[in-house]
Amino acid sequence: MNGLLHQIASGIASGAIYASVALALVMIYQATHHVNFAQGEMATLSTFVALTLIHAGVPFWGAFVLTILLSFALGVVVERILMRPMMNAPVLSSVGVFIGLLLVINALDGWIFGFTIKSFPSPFHAAHPLLGGYVSPHEIGETGLTVVVLTLVWLFFRYTTLGLAMRAAAYNPVSARLCGVRVNRMLGLGWGLAAAIGAAAGIMVAPVVFLDPNMMSGILLYAFAGALLGGIDSPLGAVIGGFVVGVLENLFGAYVVGTELKLTVALMIIVAVLLARPAGLFGRAVQSRV
C-alpha cells in the first residue's frame, strides 16, 4: 500500500512535467496546426543555460527567471526565422524543419555543454520527511510550481485582453486581423510562451532525471502522448492527459512490466484509449467535409 502511494505520488510529479510540455505543444498546435517536435530540445537548451548561470554564481531563482526570459526570446526568434517563411509550405515540410531544428539544438547542446550526464540542484529542501515520507521535497515543490505556472497561463488566456487576442488569432486569423489584432505578433508570442513553459518544465525535471542533451526526448514523447490523450486541441485536456500518463507510466513500471518495457506498454494503453475515442478524451471530433 505504501509503495503504491509512493508510486502514485511520483507519477503525479512526473505527470506535472508532462502536463507542462503537453500544454506547450497544444498551444503551438492550436495557433499553427503544427506539432513542434523540437519543443523538448528547446527546453533542454534552456536547462543548460540555467545550469550555466547557477554555476556562474547566480542564485537559483534568479537563474530560473532569467532562463525563462531568455527562453521566451528564443521562442520568438525561432518563430520569426524558421517558422514564418514556412507558413505556406506543405505540412510535412514544416515537420522536416522541426526535425532539423531538433537535430541542430541537440548537437549544439552536446558540443557546447558536453554529453556527460550532469546533476542539477533542486531548490526544494526540507528538514523533515514530508507527508509521511511518501514524496520527496523536490517532488512536492516541483508539482506545486508546475501547478502555479499552469494556473497563471490559464488566467492569462482566460482573463487578459492579450490572451484573448492570442486565442482569437489561433482560432480565426482572418477575423482576428479584421479586429486589428496583429496575428503574426501573436504567433511569435505564442512560441515565446510555449518555450518559456518548456524551460520551466526542463528546470524542474532536471534534478530528477539529470541533465544531458537527450534529457527531454523521452519526456517529449510522454507529453505528446498526454496531449493526444487529452485531445490535441484542448489545453485543459492536455494538462489532464499529462498527469494521467505520468501516473500510468509509474504504475506500469513498478508493478506490471518493469522499467524496460514501461514506455511500450504506456503507449499501447494510450493507443487503445484513442481507438475508443479517436479525438482524445477532451477533444472535439473534426468535422469531415465533402
Partner: peptide
C-alpha cells in the same frame, strides 16, 4: 464569428 469564444469575448475583440 469566433465560434469557440463567447459573445462577450467576440465583442471584446471588436474593441481590441
Amino acid at each position: 464569428t469566433f465560434m469557440e469564444l463567447t459573445v462577450e469575448e467576440n465583442l471584446r475583440l471588436g474593441a481590441y
